[in-house]
Design a protein around this nucleic acid. Structure first.
Lengths: 336, 336
DNA sequence: TTGTAAGCGTTATCAA
DNA sequence: TTGATAACGCTTACAA
């Protein structure tokens, strides 16, 4: 097929191993022969065969990102995308390739295939993949991997990165209290999801700290239920709503506006996730922004530290959220 | 390292080639030996070394998707993500891996590396990558590739898939005319982008067909300019706005609402892209939906047809848009 | 139906 | 500083 190291060697009048040394930037080689070989490589348009290289090195120079998408959801959410982008970038910086693997089977086979057959050098796994049988495989092989999201087990020994949703809720609650809202409700979609669970915990924690009970509402298909709860809540006091995503925030906002409840004067809103539209709402929405780029970047960096066995590496990282205050919760200065 | 084909052969009392045949599902083999070998493979936990396999086969069983992201933009837009998801899925169906390569250098080196070094079996390239020097490399090697988006050159010979933005505009314009709006303005962001160019062309075409001149507005940082144009336009007649994305639509909507212009009675709005928020707007936005999942799926399928040299394959595909009519343009029945 | 043996392109060990 | 040679694990003529 293509030009091989042997062809170069023959033409340059050296041995294949010398050529190999040049390709690999081996230092112990004379300027003279190096230049000669480089010239021939250029002339003959030599491209090292990475298949052969990987084979000889027993390494793919690739890491795999396992995703867990039964449907398109995982790929269409911004959360995932920015992480992916970051991971790809870090991989590139380390001269590694990134393999994307969508694993919709629940067993260990995907991981086994990646480890034993595909011979990738490291894995980034979503926390939803963490199960005993999977960990078994990885630990047997002493295989480098990082978990994306706080794992459901062994959270003190595994290596993972997550968004600090707990702290995000606390920030939002404290901000709303400072703005003078007397009570705060949390509106979530379903509490199974890990993000929402942590948000709930943080909310409860902060409410508790302020001596309040808290009030959790669920956003369901049937809007009228939520409507009743929201209006009932706001009737009692100048309260605020911490919403777990932008759609929920929009719904709450609509319910309030329909009843001519003034935002932020009579009711405040804060939502998780800074979707492009949050800033365009009327009034613009205060958000707890989560940096998913950083999430991916950290995960990938940790993985490479594992692969390279760098000393003193961190094992668990929580990424701070960022509270972006906009008009939907800026009660102070408006009300006095 | 791991268990090899030789280990299996020895233990099963056969030759390595026989084991290889079993691994590869070769037909010419007796049930008996096959079963014997399978049992041993299971016992010894054999996993074929894909590196060695790829090397021996001179094929990676991988396709690469080249993306072109100087920044996070490419990864955070939904457009790209669903395509990516589709491509990954099709690759998997064909037992291929997907390699994501972010190429921010403008030259041919990324493509060369993919073709000559990494030995992927096919490429999916964004149309922005299509340049003479790149095509040269690919054609020299007779290398399978598909372009994502109508290419800037050789559009009748290259293999590509794109969204039919031209038709999308026409649909929207005709819908708005049918609803009784007397004139339609197109609001775009910048006309350099291929999507927007095609939308503009389609708009002009349809307007022309209806004997109208058309009116193109640009959405810029400074909103006041657009405001003037929008209000001036709507003063003259009951007109409608075709917006090139959701943010623009939101801005136009806001301008109109601030002046108490009734939507859809006195002004209509249609926007490209069905972002989750479009349905939540007040009134809900009519959208020209573009199926980017299908875009990726088609691209990947075409690529595998190229790789497998299947007969009678299509060369250029335009993917139909879908008009989802919501209240923001439903003037009929409201006005009579 | 099965076995033998060469070969894929590179790296690594050892000797020169 | 260089070269000869074996090895990596699998596939595939070709022979049996």
């Amino acid at each position: 097929m293509g030009v091989t190291i042997k062809d170069i060697a023959k033409k340059a009048g050296v041995s294949p191993s010398t050529v190999s040394r040049v390709v690999n930037g081996n230092r112990v080689i004379s300027e003279e022969t190096r230049n000669k070989i480089l010239k021939v490589m250029d002339q003959m348009q030599y491209h090292p065969n990475s298949l052969a290289r990987k084979f000889a090195n027993r390494s793919t120079y690739a890491i795999a990102l396992v995703i867990n998408a039964e449907d398109e959801a995982a790929f269409s959410n911004t959360f995932f995308n920015r992480s992916l982008f970051a991971i790809e970038r870090v991989a590139l910086q380390n001269d590694y390739n990134l393999l994307i693997t969508n694993d919709n089977r629940g067993d260990r086979s995907c991981i086994q295939s990646l480890v034993y057959e595909k011979h990738v050098d490291g894995l980034i796994l979503p926390s939803s993949k963490i199960r005993k049988e999977v960990l078994e495989v990885l630990e047997n092989e002493n295989f480098p991997y990082v978990v994306l999201g706080e794992p459901p087990m062994r959270k003190h020994s595994l290596i993972w990165v997550d968004i600090d949703n707990h702290e995000g809720s606390r920030r939002a609650v404290n901000h709303l209290l400072e703005e003078g809202y007397q009570d705060i409700a949390l509106v979530v979609k379903d509490q199974k999801n890990l993000f929402e669970r942590k948000r709930l915990e943080g909310y409860r924690y902060a409410m508790n700290e302020s001596g309040r009970n808290g009030n959790v509402m669920e956003y369901k298909e049937d809007r009228s239920l939520l409507e009743k709860e929201v209006l009932g809540f706001i009737e009692k006091q100048e309260g605020a709503f911490l919403c777990s995503n932008n759609v929920i925030a929009y719904e709450v906002m609509k319910i309030l506006k329909d009843r001519k409840v003034k935002i932020p004067e009579e009711a405040g809103i804060v939502t998780f996730d800074n979707y492009p539209f949050a800033a365009y709402m009327d009034p613009p929405l205060t958000v707890v922004d989560i940096n998913t780029y950083l999430l991916g970047e950290r995960a990938a960096n940790m993985l490479f530290e594992e692969i390279k066995k760098i000393n003193g590496r961190e094992k668990q990282i929580l990424i701070e959220t960022d509270l972006i205050v906009r008009d939907s919760s800026r009660r102070k200065g408006v009300v006095n």
